[in-house]
Lab assay of single mutants.
Amino acid sequence: VTLFVALYDYEARTEDDLSFHKGEKFQILNSSEGDWWEARSLTTGETGYIPSNYAAPV
């Protein structure tokens, strides 16, 4: 399992994006889409796309 942590807060701009807060942890589901990764929040259980430059490996 690849775990990442949010470096900044992010507010979803589309219904496919995932809103999150700094410090929140994610499981990365798909990182082959370039700058946007499909991720599941370990806090909320929700799935959506996150900007890859807002996350770092745990």
Results as ranks from 00 to 15, higher is better:
W37L: 11
V1W: 14
I50T: 01
G23R: 02
L42K: 03
A56H: 08
I50E: 00
T14W: 13
V1T: 13
V1R: 11
N53H: 13
L3K: 04
K25Q: 12
V5G: 01
R40Q: 08
K22I: 08
D9Q: 05
E24G: 02
N53D: 10
V58M: 12
S52D: 02
I28L: 07
A55T: 12
Y54M: 09
T2P: 11
E38R: 13
A6F: 02
T2F: 12
T43N: 09
T44C: 04
L7H: 03
T2V: 13
R40T: 11
K25N: 07
G45V: 01
G23S: 03
L42H: 05
R13W: 07
T47N: 05
R13E: 10
I28G: 00
S19F: 03
S41H: 07
W37Y: 09
E46H: 12
N30W: 08
A6H: 01
L42E: 07
E24P: 00
L29E: 05
T2H: 11
I50R: 01
S52Q: 07
A55Y: 04
V5Q: 07
A55E: 01
K22H: 06
I28T: 01
V1D: 12
L7V: 06
L29Q: 05
N53A: 14
N30T: 08
T14N: 14
G48V: 03
D16Y: 15
V1C: 15
Q27K: 08
R40W: 07
S41P: 00
D17C: 15
W36E: 03
S41M: 08
D16H: 15
K25S: 07
G34L: 11
D17F: 15
T2D: 11
V58Q: 08
S31N: 12
P51T: 02
D35N: 09
E46W: 08
S19Y: 03
S32Y: 10
P57S: 07
S41T: 04
G45Y: 06
D9G: 06
P57M: 08
E33S: 14
A56M: 11
G23V: 00
V58G: 05
G48C: 05
E46F: 11
G45Q: 07
T43Y: 09
D9A: 06
D35V: 09
K25T: 12
E15D: 12
L42F: 07
Y54E: 01
R13S: 10
E38D: 05
S19R: 04
L18Q: 01
F26K: 00
Y10M: 02
N30C: 11
L29P: 05
S31I: 13
S41L: 10
S32L: 12
Y8C: 14
Y54C: 09
K22D: 01
F20P: 00
E15R: 11
T44R: 04
S32D: 11
A12C: 06
E46A: 13
Y49M: 14
T2N: 12
R13F: 08
R40L: 12
Q27N: 07
Q27R: 08
A12K: 09
S31L: 13
E33Y: 11
S31F: 15
G48R: 02
R13Q: 14
T44H: 03
A12R: 08
S19M: 03
R13N: 09
V1F: 15
T47C: 10
G34N: 12
E38V: 15
A39H: 00
G23P: 01
D35Q: 10
T44Y: 02
L3C: 10
F4A: 10
G45E: 04
D35Y: 13
T44Q: 02
I28Q: 01
L7D: 02
Y54W: 08
T14P: 01
Y10P: 00
T14S: 14
L42P: 02
Q27H: 12
R40E: 05
D17E: 15
S52K: 14
Y49C: 11
E46K: 15
E11W: 09
K22L: 06
A39V: 15
Y49N: 08
I50Q: 01
T14R: 15
A56Y: 09
L3N: 05
S32W: 11
S32K: 11
Q27W: 15
T47K: 10
L7T: 04
K25H: 13
A6V: 04
L42Q: 06
P57Q: 08
L7P: 02
A56Q: 10
S19K: 04
E33R: 15
L42T: 06
W37K: 02
D17R: 15
D35E: 12
V1E: 13
K22E: 07
I28F: 03
Y10A: 01
K22A: 12
T43Q: 09
P51R: 07
R13H: 10
G45A: 04
G45I: 05
F20Q: 00
R40P: 01
T47V: 14
E24S: 04
E33C: 14
G45L: 07
A56W: 09
A55P: 01
A6T: 04
Y8S: 06
L18G: 01
A12S: 11
Y8I: 06
L3P: 05
V58Y: 13
G34A: 13
A55G: 06
R40F: 10
P51I: 04
